[in-house]
Design a protein around this nucleic acid. Structure first.
Lengths: 145, 145
DNA sequence: GTGAAGATGTAATGTTATTACATTAAGGGC
DNA sequence: GCCCTTAATGTAATAACATTACATCTTCAC
């Protein structure tokens, strides 16, 4: 049993999409990393099991997984991370540590609606996509102190 | 009189730094664009008046201006924009339109402290840098509707 | 005027991402 | 089953974004 992959498969099936062998391999590699992965690092890993893999191979697959909400792209790191809770529509917030580059995701925080409506008052419609916030994680704050 | 450039010059002087001719040219080009500019577009513009300009020329200058708080880098666009209010320390929020790629900056919104303290409770120290939020600007919402 | 630090010039290269087109696989109607 | 359409992947080339390393020039304190 591989729970996350099975969850992804059902999630995609509900959208009328498939978790193909390639997508499964890419998602497995992302899951194995426990953190953000750069596209070309992912490509290098993928090539070990799929020698013909090339940039379009990974970028297409990542685009698909991102569009499906299974993976997020971290703009500030130019990297990709598996969403820990893609079981339902959610407004995830990605807390990106500027020191260790770790990413923590919090799901539907209580202040999200406040923020959204404050921005809406100003005429800006916040995206349903992820919100990325930079800072220092707990561990790195202690090190820096 | 060129107010924004003079303001930048004083701002830098207060930090013990200088607005050199190169920096002034780059900042002028950024100001003239009224929106985010990509580094290589800036380079192309700069080369018209400074033929020897190369990637390090623009990236070094942009790094300097970003460090000084005069310019922000928009991670989601991989572009750079002049900060409209670099007169004091501020926690700017950059509202990035996903459709037209325009950027609006709001300065120290009232909800910022709430957000910061909510994240601090969770152990995350939000950066003093800019917060970037993606969505649709007023104009693009109307077009989409 | 000389030495240190800052700023810029220059060449090369590294990293991230896309385009364009060919080929193969999967599913529906008959 | 066969044909057709669409989705998925393969493959080659290139575009777009950014950095390294080192040379040269400028500034300014002394």
């Amino acid at each position: 049993m591989d729970a996350p992959l099975d969850t992804a498969e059902s999630w995609l099936a509900a959208r009328g999409e498939k978790l193909t062998e390639l997508r499964r391999e890419v998602l497995s590699l992302l899951l194995a990393s426990h953190g953000p992965v750069k596209a070309y690092d992912l490509l290098a890993a993928l090539q070990k099991q799929r020698p013909g893999a090339s940039p379009p191979t990974v970028y297409r697959t990542l685009d698909f997984l991102v569009a499906a909400g299974i993976v997020h792209r971290i703009d500030s790191l130019q990297a990709f991370v598996v969403c820990p809770s893609f079981h339902d529509a959610h407004h995830g917030v990605l807390l990106v540590c500027e020191r260790c580059h770790g990413v923590e995701e919090i799901d539907n925080p209580p202040w999200m609606e406040t923020l959204r409506s404050a921005l809406a008052t100003g005429g800006f419609a916040m995206s349903r996509h992820e919100l990325e916030i930079k800072g220092l994680c707990r561990n790195c704050q202690e090190i820096a102190a």
